[in-house]
Amino acid sequence: MSMREMTYGEAVKEAIAEEMRRDPTVFLMGEDVGKAGTVFKVLAGLHDEFGDDRVIDTPIAEAGLVGLGVGAALTGSRPIVDIMFGDFITLAMDQIVNQAAKLRYMSGGQARVPLTIRSTMGAGRSSAAQHSQSLHAWLAHIPGLKVAIPATPADAKGLFKSAVRDDNPVVIYEDKMMYALKGMVPSKENYTIPFGQADIKREGDDVTLIATSSMVHVALDAAHTLAEQGISAEVVDPRTLVPLDSETLIDSVVKTTRAVIIDEGHKSFGITGEIASVVYRGAFDYIDAPIVRLGAMDVPVPFSKPLEDATIPTATDVVNAVREMGIEKA
């Protein structure tokens, strides 16, 4: 397969551009997505190609913005709505949870809501409590929504294209710390990744590290360190939370008999708890150590750097967790 190197941000932009070229009903709207190309500058150039009609700057009004997206999706358009920071999704929660997610079901299967909401997540930029949250668990909790959370440029491109083509509302989360991350991306125009397919990012035998979004890279770092210590870690990335590829996660833990789950959402009532229960049930007879969950500390994200750093899981945390699992090397 022919591949090209690009950044995560470029992959997202390319996915949107290709889908807009392919399907005239696709358009993008959001705050400063036009000439500015978003505040992260990730979509710079899209407006030049598609113009005001299809790359639309909106008022600062998240509830209305998403509401319009729902209505447009319901009536033959395929909108992509941009919510700059994941924290601001809370302002549009009624539109997402009570409207977008439920229209198909409530209408007895009549409605289709092919809406893509793209937003960001992740701490680490000293942006404090209202610009750093990872709230993807909120949305994964709601039947009727799909949630994708790509960790690499290739996954970002493939999943984004699938999101746009999906006939359901999809929320796709980009970690803003990853925009400059480089990786190889398949060149072919129709490169998509189906939802519900986890990806084994590194193979191993002794322990499974199940990680999402930027935490995949934390897990890969940890796996590297562990390898130097003679422990072989497998890194599995679910890539989409809804639908969740339980089978791949369970199979990996059946093989390794141990798991650490790492996600940047708050630990309590979140993604790691859900995945742990899926794995416990599926791999119960094979598990040799209590599953460890690592998530953002259960506090609002603090501004001050030393405090903020303490709230996000690190590769060291992962390594320490694994080392306490009593893995005996032959």
Partner: peptide
């Protein structure tokens, strides 16, 4: 705010500053 808030969240309740805000509106 003991460093917890930063630029976007400065508050001083003692003089009626109920807080800067990171959310527009």
């Amino acid at each position: 705010c003991r460093g917890k808030g930063g630029s976007m969240h400065i508050a001083d309740m003692s003089v009626g500053i109920l807080g800067a805000n990171g959310i527009v509106g």
